[in-house]
């Protein structure tokens, strides 16, 4: 029985999730036509199960090793950052690269803004954002010949 208070419950929860992921891998590997395709994922799913289970046992014995934990800071801004990036990327095939990149840049500027909005910032920041987006658009599309999405909505 543990004699010390259990630390790093989050680490144990992640370990349990990883065991679930490893089981999913083993289940998926049962459907492969060629057994050579299954050897590697099964082996390392096994390693993942053993390492994660060993960590849970360690945690149960009160010897968990806590990670850095959540530092202070704005959770809504964090979530917004990921959401805006993801939303903009998913919208790109429909509204095109520029159509998605400019609103994403503007939204992320608002999310990352901690200083007061002065007249200078209101005027200059959008201009810099437009310059960066258009500059990279030109570099990738014209110089590097990357076929950036044009947007299904505008293709007719």
């Amino acid at each position: 029985m543990p004699t010390e208070p259990r630390s790093d419950t989050g680490g144990a929860v992640v370990s349990a999730i990883l065991i679930g992921v490893a089981c999913l891998v083993i289940w998926d590997s049962m459907s492969y036509m060629d057994k050579d395709s299954a050897v590697f994922p099964r082996t390392f799913a096994g390693v993942l199960i053993v390492a994660s289970a060993a960590y849970i046992v360690k945690w149960l014995l009160g010897r968990g090793e806590a990670g850095p934990g959540a530092d202070t800071g704005s959770l809504p801004r964090r979530v917004l950052l990921v959401g805006i990036m993801l939303g903009g990327t998913m919208a790109m095939p429909w509204i095109g690269f520029i159509g998605a990149a400019l609103p994403v840049f503007a939204a992320l500027t608002l999310v990352a803004m901690y200083d007061p909005w002065t007249r200078f910032r209101v005027l200059v920041y959008p201009l810099i954002g437009i310059a960066i987006v258009l500059g990279f658009f030109y570099l990738f599309r014209e110089v590097l010949q990357v076929p950036l999405p044009t947007g299904d909505l505008f293709d007719s």
Partner: peptide, 18 residues
């Protein structure tokens, strides 16, 4: 920061796509 964050985020998107 209000320009650094969107600029880096934008580069990660276009770089990964390319």
């Amino acid at each position: 920061k209000a320009l650094l964050v969107p600029a880096i985020a934008f580069m990660t998107i276009i770089g990964s796509y390319a």
